[in-house]
Design a protein around this nucleic acid. Structure first.
Lengths: 253, 253
DNA sequence: AGTCTCTTTCCGTATTGTGGAATGCTGGTT
DNA sequence: AACCAGCATTCCACAATACGGAAAGAGACT
């Protein structure tokens, strides 16, 4: 670890974090990768990659082709479905219920050190629909769930999670300064819900309601602006508000 | 590392293997576990468990309840679905082979918390053909792959995945009650394959064969009823049966 | 308030992983 | 066949890193 900062977030078990980096890089690439390729994508030396990869192969988390390249192993698929089941089984029925009632995609998200993470989802029935992936992390400043989650925190803590560098302007409506964000958060607290008016992706409208169940959480409904009329948003607000206590009961242990 | 053998297979990166042990123990237990409980299940000292678990929590692979117990995090679900997708591409050549032989669309699917997910596909050569999208999730109760996947589970678990509300009647032949479904699943188990007689979309016929390769999977052949004659269905059954062991070899450990 | 259990932090130690460099493959090209 | 990249893999001396016993802290229960 010569130059630059020692490690992105230097508090955990180093080799474990590196192994996770490996898995994630392979996951994003969606295709087999060789040691050299992995080395340049992670910044780790080839010898280190090789050692970590062999460990993961031995346990079935990676698999190696004859041409020596690696890809994600099926052990991960098995663990993944267990993980999905653990949280899915709790809130999923209610999310599905909401998605059926509103006909748009419903998401459940939680606050993590770097962004809002989707932990549950139920797709609407339209063929053009929002597509979100459970496990995916999205920015806090430019999404409905992100802003809703921030609104649960005192201003002081919210700002600490929003490094100004991270407030990327994705669309013309994206909030890009801490000052604007504080105003927005005050509005969200007053109304009890957050709106995303195409702040992450143009033409996408979203309403998100925050709540606390063990951790900070938010439920949202999102879809193309054409279908997400003020009328539907209002219906969604009422439905999400009604669902909130049930979600708290389901998710808090 | 005093007496007792250091580790089952002592050649990998130690802390990474221990972290994987942790994930696996939690996965098998399918429920939240505390540090002490994990400690007794893995043989690792509590301090070590705590350090590893914190690292995994920071990265989203584990989540912690307010009562401090840990459970599998949604990041694993994300990686798992990627792994599933990659496995699909492993099987692609065989799917293509089958599609060429039978001249109809061949699909590979896996079981997810909300539906069967297509992870591989190879289209038949006819211009009117089934169109399925890799990554798309379809209902369990009204599709060949869905029913085939359900047949792998004990009745009890299968029913839990089938909320009566979700058993939408898409066509006159759609199975809409748990009772009917249990009868159907028994038939599928007896025959070793599932049929879909236009239960999702009228005029579409499908045969699906279930198998287990680390996770629950199914291969299917589907096409317009006009071409999917009993004779072709029988040929497909034989071909899929023959392909099954190869698929298991390709997709499992 | 007091006790018990379980989790978390601390810190000195040496085990363990590290990575640059050397070696060994492999498959593509002339 | 023989050569030559461009890889992956092994080696090894070093010290950074993870380790775990013990102590401190947090809840829960009586």
């Amino acid at each position: 670890m010569s130059d630059a900062r020692p490690n992105a977030r230097g508090s955990g078990v180093h080799s474990v974090e590196r192994a996770l980096d490996l898995l994630e890089v392979l996951g994003e690439h969606s295709g087999p990768m060789g040691v050299t390729e992995l080395s340049s994508n992670t910044g780790l030396p080839a010898a280190t990659i090789h050692r970590l990869a062999q460990t993961l192969v031995a346990r079935g988390y990676l698999r190696q082709l004859r041409d020596r390249r690696y890809y994600l192993g099926s052990r991960l698929a098995a663990l993944g479905s267990r993980a999905g089941a653990m949280m899915g089984s709790r809130a999923q029925p209610l999310l599905r219920e909401l998605a059926r009632e509103l006909q748009e995609t419903v998401n459940l998200a939680t606050l993590t050190p770097d962004g809002a993470e989707y932990i549950g989802q139920s797709a609407g029935s339209h063929s053009v629909r929002m597509f979100t992936e459970v496990g995916r992390r999205v920015p806090l400043h430019s999404t409905g769930v992100g802003k809703a989650l921030l609104s649960l925190l005192p201003d002081h803590d919210a700002l600490r999670l929003l490094r100004p560098d991270d407030m990327v302007q994705f669309t013309p409506t994206t909030i890009t300064t801490p000052q604007q964000m504080l105003v927005e958060l005050a509005t969200i607290r007053a109304h009890g819900f957050a709106m995303d008016e195409g702040e992450m992706e143009q033409g996408v409208r979203c309403i998100a309601v925050p709540f606390v169940a063990d951790t900070y959480m938010a439920v949202s409904v999102s879809g193309p602006a054409a279908r997400m009329t003020d009328e539907l948003v209002e219906r969604a607000r009422v439905a999400l508000d009604a669902a909130r206590p049930q979600l708290v009961a389901m998710l808090a242990d």
